[in-house]
Amino acid sequence: MLQIKHLRVSINQKEILKDFNLEVKAGEVHAIMGPNGTGKSTLASVIAGRDIFEVTEGEILYKGKNLLDLPPETRAREGIFLGFQYPVEIPGVSMANFMKTAVNEIRKYKGLEPIGGADFLKLMEEKKKLVEIQSKLNNRSVNEGFSGGEKKKNEIFQMAMLNPTLSILDETDSGLDIDALRIVANGVNKLRTKDNATVVITHYQRLLDYIVPDFVHVMYDGKIVKSGDKHLAIELEEKGYDWIKQELEANASI
């Protein structure tokens, strides 16, 4: 589904991703871990189409298409979803208006009729339950005045509404208490199918107790330096990232 090949990305002449490679297939869950500043969020943004980054080398193929040629909205309509690490507050745009517009833009792209008002409200209610949002969401401005936990739940709510094929969740667990973490993880698990895939970016192994990954990758200095299964995450939790660094230095000195 997703193939990232030899990707090099810079911002302001500073190279962040250095020969990054990854392949994600339908039905898989990948976890990308690693210390701060190794380029995890840059990777997520580049997949979603943020234009402040410069791709200097490599390619990203999604369902065989060259993703880098597409603007962010087309990527979204093709089924890519980015769960933001810091969801943006947009005063004056109601959640209902935002979601209805988004759902209909995607439907239009797929050649479908716009969703009717009643059906839409039903969909909103149904998906709210998935992430246990009790409050009235419809007339609230997007993320405005939301608590940290609400913002993250809102990301998963939007994911549920848009029903993406490939979801990139950028530190969706950061700032969540244990209950919110469970709710968010449950939401993600319920949305898992054999046809979609999820890339979870996180610092901590904790989230991976709930969202069990098929693959765990460790990122360091702009590329994946170690891959394994879920046990790698547990090992990392025990030994810390220094273990990876030492291993890298040892290899380099050979």
């Binding site: 979603a48 189409g49 943020r50 234009d51 402040i52 603007p71 962010p72 909205e73 990527r75 979204a76 309509r77 979803f81 980015l82 933001f84 969801p87 943006v88 947009i90 005063p91 004056g92 745009v93 208006n97 935002f98 517009t101 988004a102 833009e105 995607i106 792209y109 401005s141 997007v142 939007q158 848009l162």
Partner: peptide
Amino acid sequence: LDNEAMFYLRSRGLGEDCARMLLMYAFADE
């Protein structure tokens, strides 16, 4: 217009014009 907000809206499938329109309206709505 806030670039972060523009990107957020576009990452949900809203076209550039549509996102710009929504943000301008939101600005006026106050």
